[in-house]
């Protein structure tokens, strides 16, 4: 295997009323290049994670490429998934041996349409989507199952919200019982970009590359009612395969409070600092928040404050799919 490292990371989160996806992405790409003194001409492979469903337009990812510039022609790919999976593809592509650098980016303007209806479209088109279950309600089914199985309470969920910087209001009504507003992610626009580099090229580009020592992703079976929603077997397997033991910092992509507890049970993060960035309860831009978890975790190695870190990304309803990326200093 070739040694691949994160050498730079940049992101922007907010609610954007003026700029389109390309305009949100452009300064982020510029910033990540500036951090390592590169231009697009230095990049061997570009891979993106965006959603055509947010734009309501097929192949909208092609216009997002304008933020990078695709002339002269570049080597490029795209996933209709969180940018964390674009990073996985870029890591695989760098294993081919002919390229030394990759740009990975993700952009999502979640506020553009009705996000809850858009996310109902990711479900089984025959038995689920015609009922239009929204992701908060589905997460609530998981939350209740988890609380009733473990004996934990809504106060335990509120404690997670509080530790991620959310203002907790136990008297507020339910959005979907047992979840209150502070248990749910905000609807956020955002963009993130990561530069990957191989071996000596990584050492040239930054002082403390965040070397990817393990990366793996796994998926649960298709039907929500056919799996145990109270556990995350796929996150556990991915974490085991990626070698997740002994990390100092973990950034978990847990959009809902109970999901952080399920992921902590699955991954086993004894003593690790969890989500110093605030995680997805602070900002959850669709297609971006998972790549941000990897970028935020990598930044703790890049800035010298941690030796071994974990970035996790999830996709789909109720932690359907999970990716774990473990990085270390050397």
């Amino acid at each position: 295997m070739r040694d691949v490292a994160v050498v730079a990371y940049s992101a922007w989160n907010g609610v954007e009323h003026e700029r389109n996806e390309v305009e949100i992405l452009m300064p982020v790409v510029r910033d990540v290049f500036d951090k390592v003194g590169l231009t697009k001409n230095d990049i061997g492979f570009t891979c993106s994670g965006t959603s055509d469903y947010l734009a309501g337009q097929p192949f909208s990812f092609v216009s997002a490429l304008d933020a990078v510039g695709a002339w002269p022609p570049i080597v490029e790919s795209h996933v209709e998934m969180d940018g964390a999976w674009a990073l996985y593809e870029a890591w695989v592509r760098l294993q081919h041996g002919d390229l030394d650098t990759a740009l990975v980016y993700a952009v999502g303007k979640s506020t553009m349409g009705d996000l809850l209806d858009v996310l109902a479209l990711q479900l089984d088109p025959y038995v689920l989507t015609p009922l239009w279950p929204d992701p908060v309600s589905l997460a609530a089914l998981q939350a209740r199952a988890y609380l009733e199985k473990t004996g934990k309470t809504e106060d335990d969920l509120a404690a997670v919200a509080e530790s991620r910087g959310r203002r907790v209001d136990r008297a507020s009504g339910y959005i979907a019982s047992p979840l209150r507003r502070h248990d749910c992610p905000p609807i956020t626009d955002g963009a993130a970009a990561v530069v990957l580099a191989v071996g000596d090229r990584a050492r040239e580009l930054c002082e403390r590359p965040a070397w990817i020592c393990g990366i793996d992703h796994r998926i649960e079976q298709h039907q929500l009612g056919a799996r145990d929603l109270t556990r995350s077997e796929s996150a556990k397997v991915a974490a085991d395969k990626a070698g997740a033991s002994g990390v100092d910092v973990a950034e978990l992509h847990a959009p809902f409070t109970h999901q952080e507890l399920i992921l902590r049970d699955a991954i086993g993060l004894n003593g690790a600092t969890i989500n110093p960035s605030g995680g997805a309860l602070k900002a959850n831009p669709l297609m971006v928040a998972g790549l941000e978890r990897i970028g935020e975790a990598a930044s703790r190695v890049l800035d010298g404050s941690a030796a071994k870190v974990l970035g996790h990304a999830t996709s789909g309803p109720c932690l359907q799919q999970n990716l774990v990326c473990v990085m270390e200093s050397r």
Partner: peptide, 15 residues
């Protein structure tokens, strides 16, 4: 019923 969630404000397309 194995698990459930009560929704006080249904969304327009919901059943």
């Amino acid at each position: 019923v194995e698990t459930w969630s009560f929704v006080s404000h249904p969304r327009p397309k919901q059943p």
